[in-house]
Amino acid sequence: MELVVSDLACARGGIPLLEGVSLRLDAGAALVLRGPNGCGKTTLLRTLAGLQPALGGTISCPPDAMAYAGHADGLKAVLSVAENLHFWAAIHGQTGVPEAIAAMNLTDLADRQAQHLSAGQKRRLGLARLMVTGRWLWVLDEPTVSLDAASVALFGSVVRAHLAGGGAALMATHIDLGLNEAQLLDLTPYRARAHAPDGFDEAFL
């Protein structure tokens, strides 16, 4: 189980953002992406998750290995916390909803509809979803947005448990999750040059 990315180039809205990105992630490891706003962290994560095609390079990863958590949590407002999780567990053919609820400290809210949760509570629910996907690699885009300090620590421990269980995590975050073992990767040097070899519109110049 490993993720190997070599010489990846990706674009957002037809504009090349990153090129030559190479990284490797083994089981039990965590990698934190850094870089200024707009440098392409989200684009890179979406490309890795298979939501958009890469401009170039290769991504090698076992199939159905990634669980993606983006800016939106994918929650249904009129479903309760437990129902939301049960749905995602069923989609992934997994169980373990009570454990996920307990791990993200949502036990008291289990029967509450998602529309009545606070922003931080919604975020916790969105992150609890990762635990019922049964996926090995967690791809996290700013997972700590709207979490308080205690919840950040809680999530940090959840990620650590996931790593200890042979999982891996790739995340874009500016907040220290307390994962001292995590490697850092600064994306700034990978910014695409103006003359990307196969940029979308280059053919027109």
Binding site: D73, G74, W88, R129
Partner: peptide, 16 residues
Amino acid sequence: LDFEDGSLDLLATAPI
């Protein structure tokens, strides 16, 4: 609705 709340992203990466 699924597009707006991000469910569609997650369904696209789900095993179905």
